[in-house]
């Protein structure tokens, strides 16, 4: 094999179809970046799910003074006796694994760290925060039953199934991921067709050369390699661009929402995603070139 000969052929081919090559590169870059974002959201969701599944499942909020909740009306804040009875009641339930009390100071701290609305932060005082019992269940499926049995207890303002809240966040992220993956699939199809077209053009432009190569007995690999390499290089450049896009997405989007995520996406995951998407991009390009060649470069 004469490497420099093949590379000069590849270079000529890429330059002759510059606009098509750029189209391929951009399509691969965007398609693979979307695929990568989808994968990143996916692993973020599963990380969060893992993180939250051994955290709170039910929050039993207690009455404060002047609480607007229906069960607290016509009565004051919860009394220490009521708290004691409630704790015993919760602990006695067969589905409860453990119970943790969160006082107003802790609740205020959590609120400060997660709330971004400065106006709300400035007017809220620790006394406004409700105390709560954080209940971990043995079987998360029993949450609804336990919640309803605790709702009527004296001093309880409200019972919130934290999973329901998370579920809506997860649902949103699932939608985001599906949209990203859906567009990624369309882009992959577009990239495949574009590459097919580029290779066909390239084969047409070089029909003289390939005709002579066939005639003098160049092997099929030798004839086809420049075309496949063209696809490979376009795929590789597109893949590198998609890697850059993914790093930008990680730094500017995933990093900035990390405060709420509790389980941040690590660079190792991002690196894995980038490697994977680049491999997919290159593979698609090479396969598309190869399949088109079979049709347009009769040997």
């Amino acid at each position: 094999m004469r490497a420099n000969f093949i590379f000069s052929e590849v270079w000529i081919g890429l330059r002759r179809n510059l606009t098509m090559t750029i189209a391929v590169i951009v399509t691969v870059a965007v398609g693979m970046a979307l695929l990568g974002v989808g994968l990143m959201i996916n692993s973020q969701v599963s990380k969060l799910t893992g993180f939250w599944s051994d955290k709170v499942e039910l929050s039993v909020y207690l009455c404060t003074k002047g609480s607007p909740f229906e069960p607290c009306k016509n009565r004051g804040a919860v009394t220490p006796e009521e708290k004691g009875t409630l704790e015993q009641t919760i602990k006695a339930l067969p589905d409860v694994e453990r119970v943790q009390f969160e006082n107003q100071a802790q609740a205020f701290k959590n609120f400060q760290s997660t709330e971004s609305n400065t106006l709300l932060l400035s007017v809220t005082k620790p006394e406004d925060m409700p105390e709560s019992f954080r209940v971990k269940l043995k079987d998360p499926e029993k949450a609804a039953a336990v919640a309803s049995s605790l709702k009527g207890q004296p001093g309880v303002s409200n019972v919130v199934n934290e999973r329901d809240l998370l579920q809506s966040v997860f649902g949103f992220m699932d939608t985001l991921r599906n949209v990203a993956l859906g567009i990624a699939i369309l882009m992959v199809i577009a990239a495949t067709l574009l590459i097919g077209n580029t290779v066909r053009l390239s084969a047409y432009n070089r029909r003289r050369e390939t005709g002579i190569m066939r005639l003098v007995g160049a092997s099929n690999i030798y004839i086809q390699l420049p075309f496949v390499l063209e696809g490979l290089i376009a795929g590789l450049i597109g893949g590198v661009l998609s890697g850059v896009i993914l790093i930008i997405v990680k730094v500017f989007i995933f990093e900035s929402i990390q405060t709420y995520m509790a389980a941040p996406l690590g660079w190792d995951t991002v690196a894995g995603v980038i490697t994977g998407t680049m491999a997919v991009g290159v593979l698609i390009c090479v396969l598309a070139s190869f399949v088109t060649l079979r049709r347009y470069l009769r040997v």
């Binding site: 000969f5 003289r208 050369e209 002579i212 190569m213 003098v216 007995g217 160049a218």
Partner: peptide, 30 residues
């Protein structure tokens, strides 16, 4: 095909290569 040479009515030379390069091409690609 390496053991068979071919010439045609329409010459089939590569227009962007000179005489030497046209002849050398047949050897390069094998």
């Amino acid at each position: 095909r390496r053991r068979i040479g071919c010439v045609f009515q329409d010459f089939r030379l590569l227009p962007n290569k000179n005489v030497y390069e046209n002849v050398a091409f047949a050897l390069e690609v094998i």
